[in-house]
């Protein structure tokens, strides 16, 4: 296994921390949004946009770019933060999130520079990713397609239609990442629908399966490297994560799936905890 520059790892951790801080600020200012799933996905987004993906913020529609679909569209705050930090649009615009005059729609929309697919109604992003991956193969382009799914989201039947088809079509340019934070809007996923054995399900559908700690940037990098080396089938990375990661009172609870910090005190505490986390990096 090739070694990963420790400075790079630190940088990605700081970026993930920034994504979390932005997410909290955006959602608190808007008094609306989904912090739980934004915080759980921050490390994955940091690695994708600041290490893995070939993109050009000055030319967001560059035909050879790697594609990303945030199928769990409610994590839009974290996604927009990553895009802005990567240079697709000004960071100050992040504080217009969900406003009537803003292009930063509640869920990802094609109005936003860098967004490859609009999402929000769960279960559809993997299908769009298949379309992009098929087009890449048809056009003999070497771009790759990444789709980030929520674990609650994969209760949707459309996901498994797509899972079957992606394997049938041998789409090795397609990577699905499941943000396995084990909590959905109403409750813990296993109290709603039993998703386990999740790895076996995907394997049974014909996918290469890699399970990782979704908050360990080194593991995320290595899993994406493995996916690139995998030929003849798509890869799914089951990223085991913590809902609300980084803000203690949001961790492991469904309460903050779709709710902002409830008052100024909660807000300040979230920022303080994230600041402390940053100092440890």
């Amino acid at each position: 296994m090739s070694s990963i520059d420790p400075e790079k790892v630190k940088e990605l951790k700081r970026i993930a921390n920034d994504i979390r801080v932005w997410s909290i600020k955006m959602i608190y200012r808007a008094q609306s949004g989904h912090p739980g799933g934004a915080l759980s996905a921050a490390d994955i987004l940091a690695v994708l946009y600041f290490h893995e993906m070939r993109v050009d913020p000055k030319n967001p529609e560059w035909p050879d770019r790697d594609r990303f679909v945030l199928s769990k569209g409610h994590a839009s705050a974290a996604y927009y933060a990553a895009l802005a930090m990567r240079g697709f649009f000004p960071e100050e615009d992040l504080l217009t999130f969900r406003d009537v005059n803003s292009y930063l729609q509640g869920h990802p929309s094609l109005m936003v520079p860098g967004v490859d697919m609009c999402t929000g109604s769960l279960g559809q992003g993997l299908s769009a990713g298949i379309g992009m991956a098929l087009a890449g193969k048809m056009d003999k382009k070497d771009y790759r397609v990444y789709v980030l799914l929520g674990d609650g989201e994969i209760e949707e039947g459309n996901v498994w239609e797509a899972a079957m088809t992606a394997a049938t079509r041998k789409l090795d340019n397609l990577v699905a990442i499941v943000d396995r934070n084990k909590i959905q809007l109403d409750d813990f996923t296993d109290r709603m629908v039993e998703l386990d054995p999740l790895e076996e399900k995907w394997r049974g559908f014909g996918w290469r399966v890699i399970s990782i700690n979704g908050h360990d940037v080194t593991q995320i990098i290595r899993a994406l490297d493995e996916a690139r080396k995998t030929k003849g089938r798509p890869t799914v990375i089951i990223a085991h994560t913590v809902k609300g990661k980084g803000v203690s009172y949001m961790e492991n609870t469904a309460k903050y799936h779709g709710k902002p910090p409830q008052n100024e005190e909660e807000y300040e505490r979230a920022l303080k905890e994230l600041e402390e986390e940053r100092r440890k990096i």
Binding site: Q124, G125, S127, G131, M132, A135, E161
Partner: peptide, 15 residues
């Protein structure tokens, strides 16, 4: 359902 989603992805890629 999957067909319509894939159609969208293909169209987003210029088809």
């Amino acid at each position: 359902q999957n067909m319509m989603g894939i159609a969208a992805g293909l169209a987003r890629s210029g088809k």
